[in-house]
Structure formats: structure tokens, C-alpha cells
Simulated scan of single mutants.
Amino acid sequence: MTSDVWLPIPAGEIDGLPDPAGSGLNYRFWDGGPDFPADPADCVFYAVPYMKGMEVAVRPLSAMTSVRVVQTLSAGIDHVEPGVGSLPPGVRLCNAQGVHEASTAELTLALILASLRGFPGFVHGQDKEEWRAGFYPALADKSVLIVGYGSIGAAIEDRLVPFECARVARVARSARASERGEVHALTDLPALLPQADVVILSTPLTESTKGLVNAGFLAEMKDGALLVNVARGPVVDTEALLAELGSGRLTAALDVTDPEPLPPGHPLWHAPGVLISPHVGGSTSAFMPRAKRLLAGQVTRFAAGDPVRNVVLTTE
């Protein structure tokens, strides 16, 4: 039996990986293609192909009887979790904390500013050679609520600081203190939502957050508020959101949707007051260098017998 490491990036393109001769590791390149690079039973470290969907992510898992680490290149692990039950005990599932924070926070601010300042209308105006002057909402003096205050939520708040927001409130699964102040529990949302001009979703997709933003959640939001989703599409009930957008009471900026990709003809494409980007929160020039550093560091720790980082769960 060999000790294979499956990587979605060719090993020759990743600086800092342990030398196969000294580590006993064999590097196999698999980016989600139809054929596996080797016997999955020989894989001890599986780095999941990036943005290839759940079917690809879980396809080899049931045959990976020797795997010890499953490493995603995404912040979320929802695309891998359906296959976790087939893994042997003691497998560490790790996410890509440190890879996506900057890019996702950048896009979040871009979506907020573009939505508030009317950029979609400016683009349409340019197409029609129309000068659409006027007064538009500013981010300055607005109250912002971040739902999902992990590393990405914190990175978003870091970038909000220069914009002179009136208030930033934070919500996570459970209450705690942070460097920037109090983090509220999800149960505090009914009291916080009516105060927020901008509600940002950056929470992982879990059983407790699936459909979190339902008709009741949206009804608690103040008139004219902006909903920004950089989390996962199923965190939001699409039909409930369409109803609010159709009434003109709320606006939305969505990097993720449910369904996704959003199919042609779906009513969300042309709903009033919505700006849609095609799930590009982490897909920037910053991704590949950071992903390579993460993989090199994790494989090096694994080869040395040191604890790997970013462990989200360990199978039992």
C-alpha cells in the first residue's frame, strides 16, 4: 500500500510540499475528472477539487478507507458533509480558513456600494446614453448587521471601518465577545433586524441556517433595507425573497442563489432591486497563491505528524 496525497493542483506547481523521497508521500493530481488518478483506498490526504460541486467532492470518499485528512479549498464544507458518514473514524475535515476572507470581504463591500449607490442603473443608463443624476443612499451613517461572524464576517467588518457606519452588529451561532465588541446569538435576530439598513449573510450552510432567511426573517427587516448574501444560496428562501423584492420593500445583492447556477428564465434574474454576481466571492487572483500555501502547509504538518489546522470536525 502507498501513501497518496490527492491534490487539485499539480504538485509541481505548489512550492513547499514535502519531498516524496523523504516523506514517503506520492502526489496524485485530480481536479474532479471522470477517472481517479489512483486507487482511492491508498489516499491518506484528500484535497477536494475547488468549485466542482457536491457530486465530485464526495465521489471518492466511500472508497477512501485509509484517508486521514480531507481538506477543502472553500470556506464552507457543506458540499463534503453528505459523504462524511462513509469515512473511517478519526478523519479530520479541514476548511480553507485564511484563503477567502480578503476576496469575499472585498466583494461584499463592492456589492453593498454598487447596490446603494445605484451602479446597476448607471450601467443601464450608459447603455442607453442616459445621464441618471440624482441623490443615492450612502453607506456612511448606515446601521449594518453581519449574520455569521466567523473569519469572513470579521474581515467584512474590518473593511467597513473606514466607511463611517453608524453601527455594526454581529451575530453568530452563539453569543461571545470579539475584539470589536459583542457578538449576539442567532436568537437575538428579531431584536436586531429592525434596526439594520444593511444585512450581510456570511454564515456557513448548516441544518440550523438552511432557510434561516425566510418570510418571517425578511418581514423583520426595515423598509428599504438591503440584504447581501455572500454565504450560500439555501440560507435564503428564494420565494420569500422574491415576494419582498416584488413589493419593492427590500433590495438585495446576491453572490449566491438557490438554485445555483441560476437558470435562464428564473424570476430572480429580473426581480426589481436585485444585483446578482455569479458566486465569485473567492474567485480572484488572490485565491491560487493562498490555496497553494494552505496545501503546502497542511501536507507538511501531516507528513511531520503535527496537528493540521482549520479542523472543522473529526469523524467518529
Rank of each mutant, 00 (worst) to 15 (best):
P267S: 03
F29L: 12
A140Q: 12
T314N: 08
V123I: 15
L111P: 00
T284M: 11
F217N: 03
T284V: 11
P60V: 07
S277E: 08
L212M: 13
A303D: 05
G125P: 00
F287K: 10
A225S: 13
A105R: 00
T72Y: 01
P20N: 08
G22M: 12
N95V: 07
V308P: 04
Q126F: 11
P10L: 11
G246C: 05
E130W: 09
Q97D: 14
T65E: 10
E13Y: 10
E316L: 15
D188I: 02
M64F: 11
A154L: 06
G12F: 13
G121Y: 09
R290C: 09
C94H: 00
A38G: 15
F29N: 07
S3M: 13
S247K: 14
D237L: 06
T251H: 12
R293D: 15
V213H: 01
Q126M: 13
P272A: 05
H279M: 14
H184P: 01
A286V: 09
L227D: 04
E129G: 09
G153K: 10
H124I: 11
A96R: 02
V235D: 03
Y50T: 08
T203N: 08
G224V: 13
S3A: 14
V183F: 01
D39P: 05
H279C: 15
L227T: 07
E130V: 12
P89D: 13
E207V: 08
A102R: 09
Q298V: 00
E81M: 15
L226M: 10
T284L: 13
A11E: 08
C94Q: 01
L245T: 02
V198A: 02
I9F: 10
E13T: 09
D223V: 12
P194V: 05
A240T: 05
Q298I: 01
S23D: 15
D19E: 14
F163E: 06
V161T: 12
A253H: 04
V235A: 06
A47R: 03
G76Y: 02
W30R: 00
A271H: 00
I200W: 01
E101K: 03
D158Y: 09
G233T: 11
P263I: 01
Y27A: 04
I14N: 04
K292D: 09
G85N: 09
L218T: 02
R173E: 12
T300H: 08
D223W: 07
H124R: 15
A47V: 15
A38D: 15
S143Q: 12
L294M: 08
V230I: 15
Y50A: 09
I146V: 12
M51D: 14
R68N: 08
K52R: 15
G125S: 07
N214P: 07
L262P: 02
